[in-house]
Design a binder for these strands. Structure first.
Lengths: 122, 122
DNA sequence: CAGAATCCGAAAAGATACTG
DNA sequence: CAGTATCTTTTCGGATTCTG
């Protein structure tokens, strides 16, 4: 059992210790739509390197947030899915998505004609 | 006007570009309870250094999330408060707090007797 | 395909000392 | 009180190469 690395005991810190970082929320958000294999996640997140994606997924697995399933096939196939605990993060992820969409909308109005587009909203 | 540093246009990335990082969500959460001065924030977040607190507050100010008010007094006094845009982050912050409390509770049950305490829940 | 291993530069963050 | 300035340390993360 991993120790919570929250020194002040703040509830927000606890959450950040599990799903904080640049990539974890994005990975989790994509997994919200269902099980995905490694290559699918990599394609969905163009800016992540193979290395970082692997590292983040391992940490999420350790925290019990995602489940990793390896199929003994050739070519190899590995699936990632949210666990029940992982799915419990949905409200947080949805709140983040909603705010991001609203914010882009506001910015879009000010950067008239810049064509701000927020995809992967589903 | 600062550019959104979201390369893939994912709404979650937009949110992270504004309130991502180790300290910003915690700072914002504390400001949710009302205007606070610099020293009050520093006390509320024991693990942050003066330097990091300053840097994060400056970034939040630049993003239009917090408002900084300097009073021409001796000793100096500086207040930080959420702007309207900042307050719109409340659902995200509350979702994070709620999840953190639930998670600590689960962990607490498994680490029986460890005395997990999550404060600053208000 | 899904990674593991290694190397390396950049960036984040901490400690400490100083100031209007 | 509310910061700056500077320095050092640590971590992050990219590029590349290799493998079952």
């Amino acid at each position: 059992m991993k120790r919570l690395n929250s020194k002040s005991g703040c509830a927000v810190e606890v959450t950040l210790s599990v799903m904080g970082g640049t990539w974890k929320p994005i990975v989790l958000f994509h997994l919200l739509h269902g099980t995905k294999r490694f290559s699918a996640l990599a394609r969905a997140i163009p800016n992540v390197t193979q290395r970082m994606l692997t590292l983040q997924l391992r940490e999420l697995e350790e925290a019990g947030i995602v489940a990793r399933t390896v199929y003994a096939e050739v070519p190899p196939r590995v699936d990632y899915a949210l666990t029940e605990l992982g799915r419990s993060l949905e409200p947080v992820l949805i709140a983040m998505r909603d705010w991001g969409m609203d914010y882009a909308q506001r910015q879009g109005l000010q950067e008239a004609g810049q064509g701000v587009q927020v995809s992967c909203a589903a």
